[in-house]
Design a protein around this nucleic acid. Structure first.
Length: 480
RNA sequence: UCCUUAGUAGCUCAGUUGGUUAGAGCGGCGGACUGUUAAUCCGUAGGUCGUAGGUUCAAGUCCUACCUGAGGAGCCA
């Protein structure tokens, strides 16, 4: 059996004084004098560095000169108990500079950088403590999601990224085509002739895997999708991306209450996973948040990150209907004093960010699930309630994030579904494949979509969604 | 897309009612220091003031347009 290479994480957690080891990594900082140098070496396995002690006279000047911030090193030497703050450090016997790093041009300096600057250098920001922590947490969350669904007998279903259905109504789409844009084939009416296109019809990048997910659920029972999703909206906010990752479970025989139970259990599982597996990174992220907010007034400061995660874990989410939320908002102080930009004074209005924030952050002070929205402000596929006015929708709202989950019980009655499609103007002909689920063996079923990056925002305490995805795609920005 | 706001050294920023050769801290480089912890101390280089027009004797500073970033709103995950 071959042994795996040791990482910095291994050395720090299990290294014993006296052991001869070999380690590779990148220089974070170098300190010292002509006799002795201290190099903080990091290989990405953990946020923590191993300190390399270099007895300068034992090495040639050229090597010492090339040990600069960002350089890749291969160090062989002996682990010893540290005379400084850390438990263990590595006294170098051999040092090879594998990749030099010109300190005059390397953008990542051993100092604090603004998030904006790092965003513009997104190809290098992985090398900072902050982004290392964020992307390790993101990785852990991806794994936790698969683990949760696997443990609960869900099937991971790969729904298509290229779709021909134009009826999902979830937003503007990116067109997928191989037609010559300078000289596209035209129909007799002078419109672009998509029958000549690659798929013989107009196609787009998916805005949701839900409809296809329902097809899977209506046979496999419980499925989930976890993949990229695309919206061509001109959204310029801290919580929107043109390309983002969404988790979409879909369950046969689940009603809206089962759906809520699953959503709450699922989110709590991932948070618990982060607390149990990412504590080093979370501590760093917590400190960052505290530092960032140190100039804020006490009542504007957010709860300490780890405390907040534990709090959400231990609280039941509030569950209220749209109508109950409407009553709370209509009678609340900011509404009566006309502090809201949009006043709540007519049943049926959609809630604005300010209203959601009030409910979550001021009134309930914990995550809130709102159900039974007026049918007019929700999608065609949601189950119409007996009142004929509301649908079995649910939005899970989180403090600081807003809507983190949107879902519903689906309309299983073919007749009612067709009626809603008619009302809203969804083309039935193109949706025949979807309608077949209601024609043949239709059953109660439910599902939801969780914005993965929004979950990462919550868990890391970051404020901008562009900082929790490695390569953010936003309007006017597709570098790298 | 709308509203607000910003763009000055590698980075973070200061720059007065328009007025000589545009400043600081950090980082870089050189030096000092035999155990440092974002080390410390001394010295040093580094700027077409976002772009294009305009007003003026004179523009980093005022005006217009555009580009880009940020915050908020809408759309939503």
């Amino acid at each position: 059996m071959r042994s795996l290479k040791l990482s910095v994480k291994d050395l720090l957690s299990a290294g014993k004084p006296g052991e001869e080891v070999s380690i590779k990594g990148w220089v974070r900082t170098k300190r010292g004098n002509k006799q002795i140098n201290f190099v903080a070496l990091n290989d990405g396995s953990t946020i923590n560095n191993i300190q390399i002690v270099i007895d300068v006279p034992n090495f040639n000047d050229d090597t010492i000169q090339k040990i600069t911030t960002g350089a890749a090193l291969h160090v062989k030497g002996k682990l010893v108990e540290s005379k400084g703050q850390q438990n263990i450090e590595l006294v170098a016997e051999e040092v090879e500079v594998m990749g030099e790093c010109n300190p005059e041009t390397y953008p990542i300096q051993p100092k604090k950088h603004s998030l904006e600057f790092l965003r513009e250098n997104a190809h290098l920001r992985f090398r900072t403590n902050l982004f290392g922590a964020i992307f390790r947490v993101r990785n852990a969350m991806s794994f936790a999601i698969h683990k949760y669904f696997n443990e609960n007998d869900f099937n991971y279903l790969h729904t298509p990224l290229i779709t021909a259905s134009d009826a999902e109504g979830a937003g503007e789409m990116f067109r997928v085509t191989t037609l010559d844009m300078k000289n596209p084939p035209l129909t007799e009416e002078g419109k672009i002739d998509y029958s000549e296109d690659f798929f013989g019809k107009s196609t787009n990048l998916t805005v949701s895997g839900q409809l296809e997910g329902e097809l899977g659920a209506m046979a496999l029972g419980k499925i989930y999708t976890f993949g990229p999703t695309f919206r061509a909206e001109n959204s310029n906010t801290t919580r929107h991306l043109a390309e983002f990752w969404m988790v979409e479970p879909e369950m046969a025989f689940y009603d809206i209450n089962d759906n809520m139970d699953l959503a709450e259990d699922f989110i709590k599982y991932t948070i618990k996973y982060a607390l149990e597996n990412c504590m080093d990174d979370l501590k760093f992220l917590s400190q960052r948040l505290t530092d960032e907010e140190k100039n804020k007034k006490a009542d504007e400061k957010s709860m300490e990150l780890i405390e907040k995660l534990n709090f959400v874990l231990n609280e039941d989410f509030a569950r209220i209907t749209y109508t109950e939320a409407y009553d709370i908002l209509r009678n609340c102080k900011p509404n009566k004093k006309k502090k809201f930009k949009y006043l709540v004074n007519e049943w049926g209005v959609d809630f604005q960010s300010e209203h959601e924030r009030y409910l979550v952050e001021k009134h309930f002070k914990k995550p809130v699930i709102i159900t039974d929205y007026p049918k007019e402000i929700k999608s065609f596929y949601m189950k119409l309630n007996d009142d004929n006015k509301t649908v079995a929708a649910m939005d899970v709202l989180f403090p600081g994030i807003g809507e983190i989950i949107g879902g519903s019980q689906r309309e299983e009655s073919l007749e009612k579904l067709l009626g809603r499609m008619e009302e809203i103007g969804v083309p039935k002909e193109e949706m025949d494949w979807y309608l077949d689920t209601r024609r043949y063996g239709s059953a109660t079923h439910s599902g939801f979509g969780l914005g993965f990056e929004r979950l990462i925002l919550f868990i890391t305490g970051m404020g901008n969604i562009r900082d929790v995805i490695p390569f953010p795609r936003t309007p006017k920005n597709a570098l790298y």
